[in-house]
Nucleic acid binder design. Structure first.
Length: 586
RNA sequence: GCGCUUGUAGCUCAACCGGAUAGAGCACCAGCCUUCUAAGCUGGGGGUCGCAGGUUCGAGUCCUGCCAAGCGCGCCA
C-alpha cells in the first residue's frame, strides 16, 4: 500500500512536469510514511513542504497541484492537505482487510523480504577470549548479534555468522600456566598462585579433570617451577614480569610437545563449554575462526607483506610499525614487537584481509563498547590493503549492569568473581534473558534487573507478549470445547464486519509488521521488533477484554477468529526471530 | 588533556532520512473477574527533551560551545 501511494505521488509529479507546472530539473525524493495519528488518515507525505522552495511556491499551493494531478485509485478514498502542507491519504477499509488474508496465506513467511538481494554479509560476534566461561557481559553481545544476523537473513541477506577464536597470544599462555599450577596443586605440590593468573574455579576444575586422566604425567617439583623467578607483585615485584617468567618456566619444564598438549586441553575444554553455552542460548555459528590458524598458515605474513609493499610499514625502536596515523587513526601502531612477536593487531589485520578475500559485501563486527578506540586502526588497515573500508560496520554493545532489586551485582573477571551467562540462563531462563538483552538499543547502557526477569507477573514484559500468544491458543481450545469449528473461508468472506475500533487498530498494527522488520534489520535494531511485539500484544489484550470472540453469529465469529489467528501468526514470527518460545498455554 | 558514546516523566527506556499534540512500561491514585486464562483491561496525575546559541516552513533529532556520566588513549587482547 505504501509503495502504491508512493507511485501515485510519483505519477503526479511527472504529469506536473509535463504540463510545465513544475521545473523539469526537480527530482523529488518522495517519502510516504504511516501517520502517527488516525485523524491524519493512513499515510502521509511531506514532499510539498520539501520542494516548495525549489518550485518557487508555498507548500500548500504545491500540495494542491499535486493532489489535482494524482491518478485515480480505487483504494484511496480521500486525500487532503493538512497542517503546514502535509498530504494525507485515507485508504479504503476493505483494502486493509487483505492483510489478514496475506498473513494467513503466507504463514511463517509473512514479513520476510528480499531486500538484501542475497548480498553476502558476515556477522562476527561474541569472540570472547577462550580463557574462561562466558559472563553476562558477553550475553548481551550474543543475544544482540544473533538477532541482528537473523533479522538480516529475514530481509534477504546471505548471512554468515562467525566467532573469532583468540587461541594465540599471551592471555592463552597465562591460562595454560594457571591451569598447570592448579594441576600441580592437585598433584600435591605446594606453591603460591600468581596474582596475575586466572583464579576462577573453572581453572581448578580443568586441572582436576586433567589429573584424573593424565595422573602425574605433567608433574614437576615446585622448587624447579619457582627457580630463578622474580618477585610477584604482593612481594614488591611486577605481576606482569612475574607471570611471564612463570610462563617461560612452564614451557621449559614441560617441553614444547607437552606444553602444547596441555595448552590444547585447556583451550578445548573452555571452547567446548562456550560452544554448549551459546547453543543452549540459541546462538549458532557457521564458523569458528581460529587466530592461531591464521598465524600458522602464513596469512599474517602475507598481510604484513601487502602493507609493506604499499609503503605502510616502517621500523622504529626495533619494532615494525603500521602507519595508521595518516589514515585516520590517532597514531601509528606496532605490528611486530621488538622481540619478533606479532601483536594482536597484526593478526586482526590478517583476519580482516581474510574476510575481504572471502568476498563479503558487508562485514559486521559486534564489539563491546570498550573497544571503540580500536575501530579507526582497523579501518586504516582495510584502506591500506586497498579495500573499501565502508564495507565494515562496527556495532558497539554497552555493558549491562546486573541488579537484584535495587542492589547492584558486583563483578570482576580477573578474580573469577562474576556471574556467568550459564548462571543467568539458569536463573531467568533463555527467553527472558534474550528478551531483556535486546529490549534496549545496543549502544544504550542497560540495567538488567534479575528479579524482574524472573517475576511471573504483569511487570514482566516477556510474559506479556507470550501471554498474548497463549491466549489466542486458549480461545481456539475453547472453540473446540464448545463444539464449534473454525470456518476459514466464511471468516474471510466476512472480514468487512470487523468494524470495531479495536479491530481496525489491530489490523493496522498487523500491516506494519513487514516494515518494522525491515527497519529493525537495516538499522541493526532488534529493539524495534520488541517494541512492536509489545504494541501488538497490548492491542490484542485490549481487544480481548473489550469483545467476545466466540459469539453465536458464525460470520462474525469466524471473521474474528481469522483476525486473532493473524495476530497469533505475527507474534509467532516475531518471537521466532528473537528466538524466544511462543507457548501454547501458560 | 584528546577521542568515542550517552543525557527525554520519580525509575527503566521509545520516538521510523528533521514533521503535526514527545510515547510506553514500572511506581502512584481510582475502578473492572456469575462472560473465551486478572501473567489481563479501563481511567487519572506526572516533561525547562542536560544548558545556551545557530541552521529552517518546522529541531528531542542537524551544527557550534559549555555541563555531567561511562568508556578508550600499551611493543595487552
Amino acid at each position: 500500500m505504501m509503495q502504491k501511494i508512493e507511485a501515485l505521488v510519483h505519477h503526479a509529479f511527472e504529469s506536473l512536469k509535463s504540463s510545465d507546472l513544475i521545473d523539469h530539473t526537480i527530482t523529488p525524493h518522495i517519502v510516504v510514511e504511516r501517520t502517527r495519528d488516525n485523524s491524519h488518515g493512513d499515510f502521509t507525505t511531506n514532499v510539498a513542504m520539501m520542494l516548495a522552495k525549489q518550485a518557487k511556491t508555498n507548500p500548500r499551493t504545491l500540495a494542491e497541484h499535486i493532489i489535482a494531478a494524482l491518478p485515480q485509485d480505487a483504494s484511496v478514498i480521500k486525500v487532503e492537505i493538512a497542517g503546514p502542507g502535509f498530504i494525507n491519504f485515507f485508504v479504503d477499509r476493505n483494502a486493509q482487510y487483505d492483510i489478514i488474508k496475506r498473513i494467513l496465506n503466507e504463514g511463517a513467511q509473512f514479513g520476510l523480504s528480499k531486500l538484501g538481494a542475497g548480498k553476502k554479509v558476515q556477522v562476527e560476534f561474541v569472540s570472547a577470549n577462550p580463557t574462561g566461561p562466558l559472563h553476562v557481559g558477553h550475553g548481551r553481545g550474543a543475544a544482540y548479534g544473533s538477532v541482528v544476523a537473523d533479522l538480516l537473513a529475514a530481509v534477504g541477506f546471505d548471512v554468515h555468522r562467525e566467532y573469532y577464536v583468540n587461541d594465540a597470544g599471551r592471555q592463552m599462555d597465562i591460562l595454560a600456566t594457571s591451569i598447570w599450577l592448579r594441576y600441580l596443586e592437585v598433584c600435591g605440590e605446594i606453591l603460591p598462585f600468581p596474582s596475575n593468573g586466572y583464579r576462577g574455579d573453572y581453572v581448578r576444575d580443568i586441572a582436576a579433570t586433567i589429573h584424573q586422566s593424565a595422573s602425574n604425567d605433567y608433574r614437576r617439583p615446585a622448587e624447579l617451577v619457582l627457580e630463578n623467578t622474580p618477585l610477584d607483585e604482593p612481594d614488591g615485584g611486577d605481576k606482569e614480569v612475574y607471570i611471564d617468567a612463570l610462563i617461560n618456566r612452564t614451557k621449559t619444564l614441560l617441553g614444547k610437545v607437552l606444553y602444547r598438549d596441555f595448552f590444547q586441553i585447556g583451550l578445548n575444554t573452555i571452547l567446548d563449554d562456550i560452544r554448549d553455552d551459546l547453543q543452549e542460548f540459541g546462538v549458532d555459528y557457521q564458523q569458528w575462526f581460529s587466530e592461531r590458524h591464521l598465524m600458522e598458515d602464513g596469512s599474517v605474513d602475507t598481510a604484513l607483506n601487502r602493507l609493506r609493499s604499499g609503503g605502510h610499514l616502517y621500523e622504529k625502536d626495533g619494532a615494525i610499525w603500521f602507519a595508521s596515523g595518516v589514515l585516520g587513526d590517532e597514531k601509528d601502531r606496532v605490528v611486530v614487537r621488538e622481540n619478533g612477536q606479532c601483536t594482536y593487531f597484526a593478526s586482526d589485520i590478517a583476519y580482516h584481509m581474510n574476510k575481504l578475500d572471502r568476498g563479503f559485501d558487508r562485514i559486521i563486527n559486534i564489539w563491546g563498547a570498550d573497544h571503540h578506540g580500536y575501530i579507526p586502526r582497523v579501518r586504516a588497515a582495510m584502506t591500506a590493503l586497498g579495500a573499501d573500508e565502508s564495507k565494515l560496520k562496527v556495532l558497539l554493545v554497552q555493558f549491562a549492569t546486573l541488579y537484584r532489586g535495587d542492589e547492584k551485582v558486583q563483578m570482576s573477571t580477573r578474580s573469577g568473581d562474576f556471574v556467568t551467562l550459564r548462571q543467568l540462563r539458569n536463573e531467568v531462563g533463555k527467553d527472558a534473558a534474550r528478551f531483556f538483552y535486546v529490549m534496549r538499543r545496543s549502544e544504550q547502557h542497560m540495567d538488567f534487573d534479575l528479579d524482574l526477569a524472573t517475576s511471573k507477573s504483569n511487570e514482566n514484559p516477556v510474559f506479556y507478549v507470550q501471554y498474548a500468544y497463549a491466549r489466542v491458543c486458549s480461545v481456539l481450545r475453547q472453540l473446540d470445547e464448545k463444539g464449534w469449528a473454525r470456518n476459514l473461508l466464511l471468516g474471510m468472506d466476512h472480514l468487512h464486519s470487523l468494524t470495531e475500533e479495536h479491530e481496525t487498530n489491530l489490523i493496522g498494527i498487523l500491516a506494519r509488521y513487514p516494515e518494522v522488520l525491515q527497519r529493525a534489520a537495516l538499522h541493526y535494531e532488534p529493539h524495534q521488533l520488541i517494541q512492536y511485539l509489545r504494541e501488538l500484544a497490548t492491542a490484542f489484550h485490549t481487544y480481548y477484554n473489550a469483545h467476545q470472540f466466540l459469539v453465536d453469529d458464525a460470520q462474525i465469529r469466524d471473521a474474528r477468529l481469522n483476525l486473532i489467528c493473524a495476530v497469533k501468526q505475527v507474534l509467532s514470527n516475531g518471537l521466532g526471530l528473537i528466538n524466544i518460545t511462543a507457548p501454547e498455554s501458560m
